[in-house]
Amino acid sequence: MARAILLAALLLAAPAPAEEPLPSFRIEMKDGVVTPRRLEVPAGVAFKIEIVNSGATPAEFESLRMRKEKVLSPGAESFVTVRRLSPGDYPFFEEFHLEMDSAHGLIVAKESEGQ
C-alpha cells in the first residue's frame, strides 16, 4: 500500500508535458493602413494574432464577428488569442480610422486539406 501511495505521489509530482506554442499571425497597423488586409488562418485551431501599431497615432484592432478588440498606443505591440473559428470570413477594422478603405481587413478561416 505504501508503495502505491509513493508511486501515485511521484506521478502527480511529474512535470506536465510542455504545451506547443499557438500558431501566430501578424497584423501591422500604421495610421489607418492595415497590412495584410487578408489573413488566412486554420479553422478549428486555436491561434494568436500579433498586432503591431507602427504608426504615429493610436490604433484599435476590432472584429465584431470574432468578438475581439485591442487598443494600442503608437509603437505598441500586443496580441489576441482566438480559441477556434468555424470556416468562414471574419471582417476586422482599425477603429480609429474607419473612414479609410485601407483600415479594413478580412480574416479567412479555412479547413485544412485533411479535415
Rank of each mutant, 00 (worst) to 15 (best):
G114Y: 13
R26D: 15
A76V: 06
P17Q: 03
L10Y: 06
D31M: 05
I51F: 06
P15C: 03
T81E: 12
E99S: 05
L12P: 05
A56N: 11
V52C: 11
P91H: 12
G55T: 06
G75Y: 01
F93V: 09
M100I: 05
K30W: 12
S73A: 15
E77F: 10
M1I: 14
P91N: 12
R3E: 15
I49E: 06
R84H: 08
G44A: 01
M100T: 05
P15T: 02
H97D: 07
I5G: 12
G55C: 06
A18Q: 03
L72I: 10
E50P: 01
E20L: 09
T35W: 12
G105H: 03
A8S: 09
A2I: 15
H104Q: 11
A9P: 01
A8C: 07
L72W: 03
P91F: 03
E111P: 05
I51N: 06
V45M: 10
K48L: 04
V41S: 07
V108H: 13
R67H: 10
R83C: 07
G55Q: 00
D31H: 05
T57L: 13
L11Q: 12
F61P: 01
F25R: 09
V82F: 03
H104F: 11
E62I: 13
E28L: 11
M1E: 15
G44Q: 03
V41M: 04
I107W: 07
E50R: 09
H97F: 03
G88K: 01
R26Y: 13
L22H: 02
E77V: 12
G44V: 02
S102A: 07
M66E: 04
P58V: 07
L11H: 07
M29R: 04
E94P: 00
R84I: 09
K30R: 14
F25G: 08
M100C: 06
A109C: 07
P15I: 02
A18C: 00
G44D: 05
E95K: 04
S63W: 06
M66Q: 02
V45P: 05
P58F: 07
A4N: 08
S73L: 15
R65F: 04
V80D: 02
S102C: 01
E20G: 03
T35I: 14
M100F: 05
L11C: 10
R26T: 15
L12F: 11
A43N: 10
S112M: 14
S54C: 08
V71N: 14
V41A: 08
P91E: 12
V108N: 14
R38F: 15
D101H: 01
E111R: 11
S63G: 07
